[in-house]
Design a protein around this nucleic acid. Structure first.
Lengths: 206, 206
DNA sequence: GTTTTATACGGAACAATGTTCCGTTTAACA
DNA sequence: TGTTAAACGGAACATTGTTCCGTATAAAAC
């Protein structure tokens, strides 16, 4: 049934010709799924997504044989976007500002994907590799921002990126209690904490 | 599994007599639901619970009009059992030992009800009052254990029960990553931390 | 441009599960 | 024992995940 090299379902191109309509529908599905997940949570009906994307149910299931596959794909896509944002932000702002903005962006990613974290921890094998992807992709991105800001003397240099990621992650999950702007405030506080230990006249470059 | 602190909640006297079979079925349902939730998670099919309880679907829905109502009822029952356990443990062991055992019991409650925490934060109105119930019931129970142990000079006295509850809660949720005994070890560590600052006859002061 | 073919498409049909409805049974009481 | 209101059971309905397959079509071959 399925041909040989369909290992990479992402926007990878190069080996085999992908039919144009297939690629188009896949993109439409991912975009629709993102919108629906964001507004209705990851438990939203698949039919709603297919309809929003303007494709049939069969098409959706052709590209994402299981509901979890669609969730994972959307998630990967968002992780990539988040990691890429680090580069853009670093280019457009001074280090500490880029760091602050990225932290808020990451927090937004977490809070808007509510229901996703429980799904990740559900033991579903479709999500197996996703947690690693999380760290492998996001941790370097944040580390770069942190290092740059530390070198510029704008934040302290003794912070572990993973700690920050986890902290924001935890804050984001709890936001069901207090609303999304609570998370925003707490993240802002975290960033201020990073800035605290680093005076402008205190270069700590070894 | 320890479960002796469950006391029957339904024998409310005051208005009309509750039919014996109704009470019996309700108990059977709660017991079956607890077993099924523990082994299969809170998303287990209702039919399975009804069957295990030996009643029809209609009976289940008569007592718990929504699936969430059943989850909430089981949860309340377990919270009560956990709170009651504090009293039994305090009577049977020396203060720090009672505290340690209760912490493990609470941790067990959290980890075995996996999937419940996400449900609580899902915004479903059926769970509205449950979070409050959590704190109102468990916080005093833990406070008593803490105070007794502190007065006996077995643990430090500057600990906020809520902090401990939250800490164990967070540890329990993360246990999907590392298995339940990881949580157990971490809780044990917490308790040792409590013991650390308090020598016998040494009113602690850092 | 036409033909060919593998691929993709759409949606009906199936399966699992939450929920409702209603005829039947029965515990409680006189 | 007879009456009755409450409870029971499970078929039927609604929603949603998933599969299947006949049809349509993009890309290649000619």
């Amino acid at each position: 049934m399925v041909s040989d090299d369909r290992e990479d379902p992402g926007t990878e191109r190069g080996h085999r010709h992908v039919r144009a309509d297939a690629q188009r529908n896949m993109d439409a599905l991912l975009e629709a799924a993102l919108a629906v997940f964001t507004s209705s949570g990851v438990d939203a009906p698949v039919r709603e997504i297919a309809e929003k994307a303007g494709v049939g149910i069969g098409t959706l299931y052709r590209h994402f044989p299981q509901r979890a596959d669609l969730i994972a794909a959307v998630c990967r896509r968002e992780i990539d976007a988040c990691a890429n944002a680090a580069v853009s932000l670093a280019a457009a702002h001074k280090p500490s500002e880029a760091l602050a903005r990225w932290m808020q962006r990451y927090a937004g990613f977490i809070t808007t994907k509510r229901g996703l974290a429980p799904a990740l921890h559900s033991g579903n094998p479709a999500f197996e590799g996703l947690r690693d992807y999380f760290e492998q992709r996001l941790q370097p991105a944040l580390r770069n921002l942190l290092d740059a800001a530390a070198v510029a003397g704008e934040v302290r240099g003794d912070i572990d990126p993973d700690d920050l990621l986890r902290a924001v992650g935890s804050l984001g999950m709890r936001s069901g209690d207090d609303g999304p702007e609570h998370t925003q405030r707490m993240v802002a506080l975290l960033v201020d904490g990073l800035r605290y230990g680093a005076g402008p006249g205190l270069p700590k470059t070894p």
